[in-house]
């Protein structure tokens, strides 16, 4: 097994503007295109927390989308846990995501039709290994959600929603967790609590976390920082 849990090699992302829609194929000319990421390369070690930082529009979220497998790069490749993710078949990708990846969104993206507990258990439904995680109640208790497990997302506070989203991301015991501004919608105190929980869990379980933030205090709690500017790694 590779010593790196994530290897990003020469990843570029080009977005085509509307003016370019009518042309066929990839235009050689840069007109009508916008290069969001430009030959980004880095590697991440297992069990570490890495923050991707940068100004608005620097490409942080796009990079996270690409490394977490929800958006394809225009060029370059991404190796996740030794697998060239974008070469996998559709079915394998789904299975890989379910087994190895946890994703946290800034706006939580909880499923409004499911209760707090059902949201947390949801990834287990698509797991081929096991249909249960006996520690769910314990975890919910630990983060203060046990009493609210029958409530729907709209009945929860922002912090509770994010904690639900975290437990949902962790329920399949992923090897790597991707978080897009996990504390962006929370106040600083709740944000810090969320981060402390994640750091503690990472150290206990040897999980890797990649998070995007523009909050330097949050970035300071991480083991490593990758700084992006205009789509390129600058630090």
């Amino acid at each position: 097994m590779s010593e790196y849990i994530l290897e990003v090699n020469n990843v570029s992302k080009i977005i085509y503007t509307d003016k370019c829609k009518k042309s066929k194929g990839v235009s050689d000319k840069p007109q009508g295109t916008s290069r969001i990421l430009d030959n980004v390369s880095f590697t991440l070690e297992r069990g570490k927390i890495t923050a991707i930082v940068g100004k608005s529009g620097s490409g942080k979220s796009t990079l996270l989308s690409i490394v977490s497998g929800i958006d394809a790069p225009t060029t370059g490749n991404v190796k996740l846990i030794g697998e060239n993710y974008y070469k996998l078949s559709k079915r394998k990708k789904a299975e890989f995501r379910n087994r190895n990846i946890g994703i946290l969104f800034q706006n939580y993206h909880l499923i409004p039709e499911l209760t707090c507990e059902e949201n947390i258990r949801m990834p287990l439904c698509f797991s081929s290994d096991s249909n249960d995680n006996p520690r769910i109640d314990e975890w919910m208790n630990a983060v203060g959600l046990y009493d609210k497990k029958k409530l729907f997302p709209r009945q929860l506070s922002g912090g509770e929603q994010q904690r639900t989203a975290i437990l949902r991301a962790l329920v399949n015991k992923p090897q790597i967790l991707f978080a897009d501004e996990p504390t962006g919608a929370l106040d600083s105190k709740t944000g810090r609590q969320i981060m402390e929980f994640l750091v503690a869990y990472t150290h206990r379980s040897n999980m890797t976390i990649v998070l995007v933030t523009h909050d330097m205090e949050i970035a300071g709690m991480c083991d490593r920082q990758i700084e992006l500017a205009d789509g390129s790694v600058v630090g």
């Binding site: 929800i70 559709k90 079915r91 789904a94 299975e95 995501r97 379910n98 087994r99 994703i103 993206h109 909880l110 499923i111 409004p112 039709e113 499911l114 949801m122 990834p123 698509f126 797991s127 949902r168 399949n172």
Partner: peptide
């Protein structure tokens, strides 16, 4: 209207067979 929910399910491993 369930599109977002379906996409989240997909993020967590749902495939076409489902």
């Amino acid at each position: 209207e369930l599109m977002k929910s379906m996409v989240i399910l997909r993020t967590y491993g749902m495939n076409e067979k489902d």
